[in-house]
Design a protein around this nucleic acid. Sequence first.
DNA 1: CTCGTATTGTGAATTTTTTCACAACTCAAA
DNA 2: TTTGAGTTGTGAAAAAATTCACAATACGAG
Lengths: 206, 206
Amino acid sequence: MKRIAENTINRLIVYKKELERLRREDVKNVFSHKLAILSGFPSHLVRRDLMNVGYFGSPAHGYDVVELEKCISDFLCTPESVRVILIGVGNLGRAILDYCQQQNPKISIIAAFDSDKNKVNKIYHGIYTFHIDSIKNFIKENDIKVVIITVPASEAQKIASEIVDSGVRGIVNFTPVRLQLNEDIYIENLDMMLGLEKVVYFVEGG
Amino acid sequence: MKRIAENTINRLIVYKKELERLRREDVKNVFSHKLAILSGFPSHLVRRDLMNVGYFGSPAHGYDVVELEKCISDFLCTPESVRVILIGVGNLGRAILDYCQQQNPKISIIAAFDSDKNKVNKIYHGIYTFHIDSIKNFIKENDIKVVIITVPASEAQKIASEIVDSGVRGIVNFTPVRLQLNEDIYIENLDMMLGLEKVVYFVEGG
DNA sequence: CTCGTATTGTGAATTTTTTCACAACTCAAA
DNA sequence: TTTGAGTTGTGAAAAAATTCACAATACGAG
């Protein structure tokens, strides 16, 4: 299978979500142009991307919503269910717990961890919080591959190194720290300030 | 001035932050290789990017931390202060209010808005919450150009359209909705689920 | 001063991504 | 059946981003 660009993956995930929505609205077919408007990418990119995943529509009816969603899901190897944990049950961590509960049921946060004794053994938004000291065992026993980090900046690097040692392969990093890890570890940096700065840049000057 | 790629902007913002940190740690000079490690991008990209912003280091001492930070800031036209508002004081909204307070002092959230009467006229993390009905006036009177949206998905499009009518030019969109707006409006989508899905993709298969 | 080492800056090559442009196709209507 | 409108799929072109590779430079040690 040909290697696919990260940008393409980003777009495919967006298409998938829009297709899910169309399916729920009981729409049967969709044209590249429509998908382009929904996703915010030009229609020729949509077509090129779908070519990459190997799905073919019909000139008359466009793409079958259900089939295409299935095809993209398969392409992305979206598993039936993925178990993820979250570290750092501060304001942001709890907000994410809440947010995730409402969304994609295929990816579920199965536990949270914190070092604060006042938070340990409590349940936030339906997720049980364990003490951080038990995290290594938990990761190994539950074969956790993906972790969400929402700890204070000062602790981010240390914890990241530890969980990677325990077998974690991917991190969603909400801290402002650029984690230094082996480069076969996939890191998605979601520092909210960067997003804000970028918008400011494009509005003010760019 | 030459138009600069969005990717370059992303990286510049990261360099800037790392330079800020180095400055606080009282580091005077930095080499492209070091900045590469800190930011996570290859050193030749760092050099190419700095070439684009027009900063020149010395082969002997690398880059002057303070000067380079200043240069990038100027290049990004980072204003002395930018005033931003946040709409939707749910869990995520409040977490962001908290998070932003601790960070970049040049960008400040000066007010929050919500439609829930129980939240209006309350102060969260130091930010006063107004009723959503007063937002149009507020945007106009305070010349707000950038807005953070953390409302429920069902309200996102309606509110986005309204604030754009009032003069907003850039949106940090934390909702899972792809906003349909005039294309001169800059939108930064920070749907956390997409980030999570992407990590899952790269860990499972990519 | 000279040599050796390390780094920058950048033209050129390469790779990747995006866009263009149009043949091929499908259907509906006349 | 034929025409026309609208769409897909894709080779090829163009544009953009990244990497290579090395000349130019600066400095310290001897």
